[in-house]
Design a binder for these strands. Sequence first.
RNA 1: GCGCCCGUAGCUCAGUCGGAUAGAGCAUCGGCCUUCUAAGCCGAGGGUCGCAGGUUCGAUUCCUGCCGGGCGCGCCA
Length: 589
Amino acid sequence: MNALKQELEQLLSEALARLTGTLLPTAVDAKNIVIERTRDPANGDFATNIAMRLAKGAGLKPVDLAKAILDVLPASPHVVKCEVAGAGFINFYLAGDAQAQVVRQVHELGDAFGRNGSGGNKKVLVEFVSSNPTGPLHVGHGRHGAFGMSVSNLLVANGYQVQREYYINDAGRQMDILAVSIWLRYLEACGERFAFPANGYKGEYIRDIAANLLQKVDATYQRPEGELFGNLPADEPEGGDKDEYIDALVLRARALIGDDAFREILDLGLAAILGDIEQDLGEFGVHYDRWYSERSLAENGAIDRALQRLAKHDHVYEKDGALWFRATNFGDDKDRVVVRENGVKTYFASDIAYHLEKRERGFDILLDILGSDHHGYVARVRAALEAMGEPGESLEACLVQFVTLFRGGEKAQMSTRSGEFITLRELRGEVGNDACRFFYVMRGNDQHLDFDLELAKSRTNDNPVYYIQYAHARVSSVLRQLASKGHDYDGTLGLASLAQLTSVHETAVLTALAKYPEVITLAGANRAPHTLVHYLRDLANSFHTYYNAEQFIVEDAALRNARLALVLAVQQVVRNGLALLGVSAPETM
RNA sequence: GCGCCCGUAGCUCAGUCGGAUAGAGCAUCGGCCUUCUAAGCCGAGGGUCGCAGGUUCGAUUCCUGCCGGGCGCGCCA
């Protein structure tokens, strides 16, 4: 919170207290006492609409009430003028040197400027990406990674205790299909020839894993294709059902090579793909505190415990041989199966157990970053939490909309090289990590994202990443020039001379700097990194404008150092903001 | 059919608790480099905030109903 804003709210509430019992019938609720920044500097620096809010209850015209409030408003050295304007606004004009104090604050706090305790030290578990480990990450996952990481950083900056987690879907049918896909490619590498199943994983990376398997076990797991395909249902190209076919193939594979060998292949594939995902995200600056295995939930009995907890309160029932959770009692559309007729627990059962386990670890907020196509999950997981006696509000979801890649004006979802979906790695290679991280969080998460590859790559003035980074580099450049002109930056003199920063451009920069802590609070509270992106653009704009309008390195030592103190503060704030977004702040460009 | 999200300038999008003349970028047009990086700055044009009601001092913002777009509604994950 801005200190000046706080002071104004204090002054205002004192004035209102003085009127209580005379003009105002009752004491004014503190939450109605709001000071806002003005949009137009012509209306002062801050304003309040309090008179308009209270006029009706007081039986007065807003303008008259505003005047009455002004009459009893305590004086402050930081306020040079207050006036009634418009329909009854009260506008405050700040003293210049009061505004300049933000520069001192930035220099004192450095990297910590903007950090605050608004999160109240609450424990948050941010779960994001959690892509099925059946293949490399594509561009949609990249948005989740960038968004989840930036939100986590913002929460930390706002005084939350944050843990980041990747939930590994390493159990269930998809894993079996992965294993069988690898095995089939391995058989091909052994020289067998057959049609690859329609529902198998067909990516090139499966062949790479199969090649590793071959190198490791030689032909140990080779079986003739006659044994393999005899007596199976038809695959889709032959008019059959691809799901039935692949499930039968999984059973056949297990029968032929044994469960242990099948598991070995599965684990080999899982490790390879997960390793690739971890490396990819790591290079992208996306790091986790924990990689949480779905399989471990079954193995350590967490799923059974969760189901028992539901059963204990009579929130499950049997129907058609399956076990159902009575989700409709907790606001969901329909009841949900947790144990199938065949005795296998559903993915949803794991999900319940996982979220319960998060609560048991003491997290106040379970923040799930989900694809917008998963929005249906929120209600049912929340229902399950409530059924288990946990607060439903503890589960919070950010739904991230899809990414569409464009190259110029054309959609470009497919890689021209591989013919498959463009991977995150390809995208990073083409446009660079900085532009990727920036573009991914440039829009609100509930907005579809059009990602223009040409724009992200362009090194011209229409690329917003460079625009902000350039502001940072320019300050470094000014310091280099300063040295080459035989000057040193004198911080003590600069901070003592801040009162000289009175031009319109300097005032605009000061105002922008003062907003930063408010932006961090807001962006954190709303889980909205794009708010910070827009702010940094504005800050950079005010700086570039100032740069073009005035010379910083002037003869007058006091003025020179005051200006340098100001632009160094800009550099610090740009660096702080970009760090939260995971974007580098270069010294030169 | 039901549920969630979106609809704001030619395009892509901001817009906080309802507030003053609705803002950026791109694109278009016109200016600014012998002075700290022109990856920059300044200016101009461009709007029925999807439509229609309601709530009130005041609605892009809140409520209702439509229209248009995306997604989801499985004993898949």
